[in-house]
Design a protein around this nucleic acid. Structure first.
Lengths: 242, 242
DNA sequence: GAGTGGTCTAGACCACTGC
DNA sequence: CAGTGGTCTAGACCACTCG
């Protein structure tokens, strides 16, 4: 037989793509329930099992959350269960506490070479830069410098950041309709510069974790570039390998 | 109706446990094929679909590897595809190269408080300590100090380590029958001590990544505790968040 | 009790591998 | 061509949630 399908894609993946598309278009908002498996099966003219397999994959990727007896929901960074999804910092004693976010600065700039390459925008395109402190139990532990494409985050200001309760990605979701899906982190050890040392109340030159993160939304589109400097005297960066 | 099953466990999980048990008992060795889904279904008196779901989970946990048309195989650290499974260090230029492992020392000792707690062995029980260097393109990048329970790794010597080609976990698998399944890593930034600085050819006091890893075999049994010091001038520690 | 996701089955057919 | 994993279906029943 002739191989007719060099790009063969099983039905459930096509269904997945359709659901993805609906998600991306905002047909269902974060936190809301999507239609039942039976309804989706009817809509796409496939069996429940095929829809199920599509949803299985999306649940595994943290795009959807299943709740037996209730329905399937669009994952949201405003859901308490997602708060620690992207923050891998754990206190030495192992007892997790929610950090307090202290916005320091927020200003406009034009994208330089690096920012334009990473965020895939034109050099010189508007960007927004945010600096903030993360405190655990009142103690400063992380300094973040966050680069955002200005077009996507129009109107973001220090006031917006200060008013908001909850996680930054929760704000991005509700205020700007941007859903953070996945991220890559590059971790290095660096020496604290003077300014950072003061903010984190450590000695100048003391070793800090440098965590560079690029965060992506649907379609692997980068929408955030940030560099965090972590003081790892009282905390560690946890990674589970399997 | 009365809730008869507070500890309800679906059939496919029971099957998974049985397959796990067979794996653990060594019924099939790393790299070997396990019986076909149909055979297992017959053996356990369930449908193929149920076996499939059990295997699906185990494949997702990297315990088994499926190969369409060929069969399902026991995952092995001697498989080239698994070489980088636990090493998250990437060169700045992004081009992966296999590191060269240089064993430096290997000696016997008795477990102190920390080692006994982490490896869950009696204080004073025999342990083996290995020090080694990891080189990329001839340059030293990582110093590892590895603590192993003596009982499990009887006969391990510097010569064994030097003779062996391939990954350390591959050696553990073939020589000692120990399969590394998952690991937790605690990452911090520290200053290079004099001895480490010399080995890594960096200045004393310069910042290094400290990567503490506890590695587990079947049944979440810890079988390795190691501390690595990584020079992150030419490499970074990569973590993918989702 | 109605509606949701979760499990289990049986059978058909497809895609890939190797003899 | 036989044997393997991979897909898809249809239907039955279970576990959970909520009104």
């Amino acid at each position: 037989m002739v191989q007719e399908s060099p790009t063969f894609s099983p039905l459930y993946r096509q269904i997945k793509a359709l659901i993805m598309q609906a998600l991306e278009s905002g047909e269902w908002r974060p936190g809301e329930a999507i239609p039942s498996e039976m309804d989706l099966a009817a809509r796409f003219n496939v069996s429940q099992g095929t829809v199920r397999k599509a949803i299985d994959e999306m649940a595994a990727e943290n795009l959807l959350v299943r709740k037996q007896g209730k329905g399937t929901f669009v994952a949201s960074h405003n859901d308490p269960r997602s708060f620690f999804r992207f923050l891998r910092l754990v206190p030495n004693d192992g007892i997790l506490v929610s950090p307090e976010s202290v916005p320091l600065e927020c200003w406009r700039a034009k994208a330089g070479q690096e920012a334009s390459r990473i965020l895939r925008i034109e050099p010189g395109a508007p960007i927004i830069i945010v600096r903030r402190l993360l405190k655990f139990k009142g103690r400063p532990v992380v300094v973040d410098e966050i680069y955002l494409p200005g077009e996507t985050f129009q109107g973001l200001s220090l006031e917006t950041l200060q008013e908001h309760q909850g996680s930054l990605y929760g704000l991005f979701e509700t205020r700007f309709g941007v859903r953070m899906i996945r991220a890559d982190e590059h971790v290095r050890a660096v020496a604290a510069d003077r300014r950072t040392a003061e903010l984190l109340q450590v000695a100048e030159g003391s070793p800090l974790l440098s965590v560079e993160r690029v965060t992506y939304t649907y379609g692997d589109k980068p929408v955030e570039w940030r560099r965090g400097l972590y003081s790892t005297a009282e905390h560690y960066y946890l990674n589970e390998l399997s």
